[in-house]
Amino acid sequence: MPDATVVHDEVVMADGAKMTARDVDVFYGEKQAVDKVSIDVDSHYVTAFIGPSGCGKSTFLRCFNRMNDTIDIARVGGRIELDGKDIYDPKMDVVQLRARVGMVFQKPNPFPKSIYENIAYGPRIHGLASAKADMDEIVERSLTRAGLWNEVKDRLDESGTAMSGGQQQRLCIARAIAVDPEVILMDEPCSALDPIATARIEELIDDLRGNYAIVIVTHNMQQAARVSQRTAFFHLGNLVEYGGTEAIFTNPRADRTRDYITGRFG
């Protein structure tokens, strides 16, 4: 039996958080990847999930927009709510859920379409813009927020796959923003990028913080310290400790957190 999660007072919500997870289990076939994890994530904060490879942090992240549904053998138990509504409820429509909870992946995955069409893809399938002018505006606004507009405004019809890795990842963030989500999940968004591109993405995350609840999975502890206000440390499928980022890094309370932060394992 693992130790109970250490939760710092500063991250306990008085009233309902944007998303709450309660006793979430994830099984891949017989293997349990996430074990009874409970956590709240809220708007205006960047929440970082850290932990060694295989600790279940990415798997857990993928529960928040039900991306595990696409994996045949994955089974999710427990309860996850968005604004107090159970997202695994049969009445919850996964299409609408994913419009509200966007995701950015580890490797930039722009569609093999033009930059414009990459951004317009989401708004189009959700019917967000009827006129061309509206769509143009969404594209410009999304690219501007993602800090990409000035670089690409003259070549919107070029292929999204022809850009540099860092630009591709910002395009993917812009694509997620374009459907106007409330939560953005980022699964190691910088692990395929060089340090300069990484720095730009980190700045971007900081800029976006005001408007969304952002959850970022990373196994780069410095990155977690730089971009997040709250940090959750996962180990072997358990949530070990959850608290303010500064407290977690300077004054961890659980032994396993301290060992990981100080480089004893991981």
Partner: peptide, 15 residues
């Protein structure tokens, strides 16, 4: 076609 394309589309709420 890389699975990442599919995931990317699903994550935007596409059917």
């Amino acid at each position: 076609v890389p699975g990442a394309m599919r995931d990317g589309s699903f994550a935007l709420g596409a059917t």
